[in-house]
Amino acid sequence: MQQLDFQQLAQALGDGIVVCDAAGTIVFWNAAATRIFGFTEDDAVGQSLDLIIPERQQGRHWDGYHKTMATGETRYGSDVLRVPALHKEGKPLSIAFTVALLHAPDGKVAAIAAVVRDDTARWTEERALRSRLRELEAVPTR
């Protein structure tokens, strides 16, 4: 079998792929990430992840990011993380993703790759169902 071309694979996937260096600067952004977040590759590459992280989530995000970079450990390699995010137009998103730690030759974490899906429709539906359930539970029974 022919050796796969990473660029071709990454651009063909339906999931967003976002890769950031140790400082949290975006170094790779595929076409699906553009579809999800609205930012083009040119908009995103070279920018901080703050581009897509709601302001109120940034402190918590960076605490976890820096801890992962320092320890080389994350539970989100197999566990799916669901968090709020921002679209280029400012509209809120809900995303689901896993990460892969990319190591330098010295063994230190050099970058983090995230495989991202837009989870907004599912999150909105679940929120509406929870709201409806609360309404039904609040109705007195006879």
Rank of each mutant, 00 (worst) to 15 (best):
V115L: 10
H66L: 14
Q8M: 15
E41P: 01
A32W: 00
Q3E: 15
G72E: 07
E126A: 09
G38E: 01
R35W: 10
Y65S: 03
Q47R: 08
P92I: 05
G24L: 06
A100C: 02
D50I: 05
T25F: 02
I95M: 00
Q58W: 06
R127W: 09
M1I: 11
G16F: 01
E137Q: 10
I36K: 00
G64T: 00
T40Y: 06
L102Q: 06
G14S: 11
F28K: 10
M69T: 01
R35Q: 14
E125F: 07
H103D: 04
A22T: 04
D118C: 05
S94D: 08
T120E: 03
G107I: 10
V99L: 12
S94H: 09
D118Y: 03
R82Q: 12
Q2E: 12
P54Y: 02
Q57V: 09
G77R: 04
W62N: 07
N30D: 01
A31L: 13
L4Y: 12
R142S: 13
D50K: 06
Y65D: 07
V83G: 04
T68Q: 05
T25D: 04
L102M: 08
V27W: 00
Q7N: 13
A31E: 12
R56K: 10
L13M: 15
C20L: 12
T34V: 11
R127V: 09
G77V: 08
A70S: 11
L136A: 11
T141M: 13
A111F: 02
A113C: 07
R122S: 12
D79F: 15
V19K: 09
A128R: 12
L93I: 04
V109D: 03
L102H: 03
T71C: 03
R134S: 14
G14M: 13
L81W: 07
V99F: 05
D43F: 06
R117M: 07
C20Y: 04
R35T: 14
K67I: 11
K108F: 14
A96H: 06
P92H: 00
R35C: 10
L102E: 03
F97E: 02
D79P: 01
G107Q: 06
V80I: 13
G16T: 03
R122G: 08
W29N: 01
H103S: 01
P140M: 00
L13A: 14
E137S: 04
R60Q: 13
V115R: 07
V45K: 05
A121G: 04
V18F: 05
D15Q: 15
D119A: 13
Q11E: 15
H66N: 13
I112V: 11
V19Y: 07
Q57L: 14
R134M: 11
V80N: 01
G24D: 00
L136R: 07
V109I: 07
G46N: 09
M1F: 12
V80S: 03
L129H: 10
H66Y: 14
V83N: 05
V116R: 05
Q57D: 15
V115C: 11
M1S: 15
D119Q: 07
T141Y: 10
E73S: 12
A96T: 00
E89F: 07
I17D: 01
R60N: 13
G14R: 08
T120D: 01
R60Y: 11
A31D: 11
I53N: 09
S94E: 13
Q47C: 09
I112R: 07
L102C: 00
A32Y: 06
I26W: 04
S78D: 15
V19Q: 09
T68L: 05
L9H: 09
T98W: 05
Q2R: 14
G107V: 08
